[in-house]
Design a protein around this nucleic acid. Structure first.
Lengths: 163, 163
DNA sequence: GTACCGAGTGAGAACGAGTCTCAGTATCAC
DNA sequence: GTGATACTGAGACTCGTTCTCACTCGGTAC
């Protein structure tokens, strides 16, 4: 849309794009909606979701799925880069693009896939949470490759809702 | 649980684990539930979700989030490996572990994160779909890093539901 | 044998994220 | 001005998942 396509440049779309470009914390769609409403109180959630999908489909934003059932996050930094996600606070930080191009060629050769891209997310504990000695898993971001544990409570649920 | 922990080895948990070990197609929780019901018709979905979370937390299964709002998938292959996901049919295939260990050390050094693991998913078109000349995006698996497109319909929705 | 306790279960309500429908509005081309 | 079409907002809806709660089951002490 906007400057690259024949789609219309509406105030709502401008607002969503501006929020996304101003944000460096990889907001979820709900967070984008909340921020856009500060400047455009009448905007609907459907419009925000539609606009985010549009931005992703036109290459003006990236959609990140940080796993563990967490909501999708959006990133206006469309240069190829990867992320490190904190398992304690859920924060995602940008990383340089560390996957060698040769690796994708090799994967394509071995798997027979026509590789179009990849998602690489490192998991760990961010410096802030390390400083706090935090290791409490955050709701919705469960460690997926965790070591076998004895005597866990059945569902390692961090309760998503209050009720 | 089972042979590694002091948790109980119940028939329901056995059934879930057996379904997961027999499956090589990375089933979703709903698919696991459906398959388990063939042998244990009285099992509840909550039990399946609880058991899957338990298997993940004890390291006996991996949870894969394939992005695009798709449901989490599960994998009984707990050896470190990565996946290639078909953007057309949604199939995920296992790949060898291609990320050099030195890369994680480097990421940890540069980001300050205490890296505990990573998720790497390649996206592309599987050989079968290439043979069919298919490029139709599958429900729930939208291309996330797609090239800028002019004149897309606003929401590239492949309708998830019939209604 | 039985009473107790805690882990585990099943049913279904509830929730959050995201999508769909639809009527109304804005914008564009003519 | 008119018609076509893109876009919007509201809200109902679906889906995946989790929570609650009453119940069952198995282990253990007596």
């Amino acid at each position: 849309m906007t400057d690259q396509t024949d789609l219309r440049l509406t105030p709502q779309r401008m607002a969503v794009l501006e929020v996304l470009r101003a944000a460096h914390d990889h907001p979820t769609a709900a967070e984008v909606y909340e921020r856009v409403r500060r400047t455009s109180p009448r905007i609907g959630s459907a419009t925000v979701y539609r606009t985010l999908a549009l931005l992703v489909s036109t290459g003006q934003a990236l959609e990140l799925s940080l796993g563990g059932g967490a909501a999708a996050r959006y990133d206006a930094n469309t240069c190829r880069h990867d992320h490190a996600v904190c398992e304690s606070c859920g924060r995602a930080v940008d990383l340089d693009h560390p996957v060698p191009d040769g690796m994708m060629t090799e994967i394509a050769r071995r798997s027979g896939f026509a590789i179009t891209g990849y998602d690489l997310q490192f998991r760990g504990i961010c410096p802030d949470c390390q400083a706090q000695g935090a290791a409490r898993p955050r709701s919705g971001v469960r460690p997926a490759h965790s070591d076998p544990l004895a005597g866990n409570t059945p569902a390692g649920n961090t309760h998503r809702k209050g009720a």
